[in-house]
Design a protein around this nucleic acid. Sequence first.
DNA 1: CGAGCAGATGTTGACGTAAACATTCCCTCG
DNA 2: CGAGGGAATGTTTACGTCAACATCTGCTCG
Lengths: 345, 345
Amino acid sequence: MTEVLPARSASRGPSMGDVAAHAGVSTQTVSRVANGLQNVEQGTRERVLASMRTLGYRPNKAARALRLGRFRNIGVIMFTLSSFGNMRTLDAIAVAAARAGYSITLVPVEHTTQSDVSVALARLIEQAVDGVVIVIEAHIVDKADVELPPGLPVVVIDSAERDDYPVIDTDQMQGARLATQHLLDLGHDTVWHVAGPETSYSASRREQAWRDTLVQAGRQVPDAVRGDWSTASGYAAGLDLSRVAGVTAVFAGNDQMALGALRAFHERGIDVPGDISVVGFDDMAEADSFWPPLTTIHQDFDVVGRRSIEILLAEIERGETTPGMVVAPTRLVVRSSTAAPRHVG
Amino acid sequence: MTEVLPARSASRGPSMGDVAAHAGVSTQTVSRVANGLQNVEQGTRERVLASMRTLGYRPNKAARALRLGRFRNIGVIMFTLSSFGNMRTLDAIAVAAARAGYSITLVPVEHTTQSDVSVALARLIEQAVDGVVIVIEAHIVDKADVELPPGLPVVVIDSAERDDYPVIDTDQMQGARLATQHLLDLGHDTVWHVAGPETSYSASRREQAWRDTLVQAGRQVPDAVRGDWSTASGYAAGLDLSRVAGVTAVFAGNDQMALGALRAFHERGIDVPGDISVVGFDDMAEADSFWPPLTTIHQDFDVVGRRSIEILLAEIERGETTPGMVVAPTRLVVRSSTAAPRHVG
DNA sequence: CGAGCAGATGTTGACGTAAACATTCCCTCG
DNA sequence: CGAGGGAATGTTTACGTCAACATCTGCTCG
């Protein structure tokens, strides 16, 4: 009964059948042991486990997925891993998924062109995932353009509400309002804005909330300076603003651009916050060490990542759909880059 | 012939069999069309493609993997996604893998404990990957402790050479030498060092090269100040150093700690680079916007990520092994945080 | 004009697993 | 003491795909 079969193939590892033959039981019993079912006698279980160890057995996930129709795998489509927020979000997603026993398949999108996006989606559509998280940053991906297979659970992390999939995001507008209001509360007449790129929904949300807050307070609304999230563009914007008379308060669309502006102001001999107050957005890990330490809006990327997985798993495992938009609140972190204007108007 | 079968199951998508029935051909022909083989008549091909579209067919990756014994999937084990370098490396890995037609399964390790590492490995060992890239940062993972299945191709990204797997990494020692020598060349008597955590191989490499360079130049070697990569620890180190008399040059183990030190020096009214010169390591995207813009060592994470995939795929696809350690060179980027000491000794 | 061949298409079986159903054995209880 | 039941274990089958082999058609060329 306990005869040893020779390894069948050099390239493939031992299967349940091999273990079964080695232990002198049926494959089904091996399967039961592998899955921790209780209806196996203690002695048998141990014999099987010993055989598994001896043969170096490891379960074949493909066969299991084929049999079960489930992969315990979630696809993540992301544009640019090299942004602070995305990487924090990805971290949170990966950890949350791992805790639920799911693995993450990462599909990078190199260029934000429609064709690249389609290619990325095509990869995932190869049905090796139970669900998909799409982290969008740009308008590029339109509902019409993206054809995801019907029935595949999807969650979108983005700032634009959509009617086809649940969306989750930081409350961009609340954050921008917080930032702008903070500067107004300090006594500034109005607030200038270094905006993110036009292609970004979150950039336009922040810009819109900044504008709304100023209008609501009855203040003059200066033209926004357009950046692209990079420190270089923030630096350019800072240089521009330093030539404008009467600028006392700047709300930058993210911390990187704020840092660039800070550098421009240093170079021009403008004191922050003495001459100009600066507020960022994101609260990246380094923000408290900028000079001066940056007042900014804290975004809770962990919450966004975690919630996205929760919503996705609810649909995958229990068929529950979460319609509409879920929003994670932000909070203002006051450090040393903001102060009352020197000559209160 | 072209009769339409009802969908068999609500939960599973259409299979090749369904497409075949719909198009009035055999499953094998559908398979040939799906794989782009040439020996299919034009008319047949179009009919099959039309059926695939109509039915919303997508290939089942699990079945394919089971059949072929290949997954076209690479596992990536990473400790902390929240470090600048790791993220850049991951980005490069993901892009390189995608170009080669492989997907990436990301396995995060929450805590750097042995048990957590084992769990992460166990996940991958579930044989859904053709190879594994391990990005290590700490000594924790010892050869003996980690039991990877034999025959599974592995590449390690780390600073410690090992005899079991190919290793690839930035040339830490060359970089640290570059940094230290740069400061000596400017005329500083010696160079202080803010080191990374003891658990990190790369930290000890950098520290060792810093020490060697000073010794070779016949300089006095001050005690290294220990940090943990964070800006907070760099700030604490900066505060410490600001109380030591005679400090004119500091080499920080990474840019974050350099930034923290910069902040400490600002607070204490110490001018950089007038009183003290500072060099970092990594060349993170923001380093050119620190105040002052940071002189640092540029690490080529893209190269490391790309090469690791090249090496891994060479082994997976062609059985070629790359023994020993592959090292990516660094380069010095001089900005404004370094200068000659005020009173040249 | 028929042997022979090339290209298109079909049939069979196996990859490793687990659900569904079948069998065996032993124990309990009327 | 035998029917009935439950636990352990075995047998069969299907998941979707593709390699290998089999078949069929039409055409070339001696």
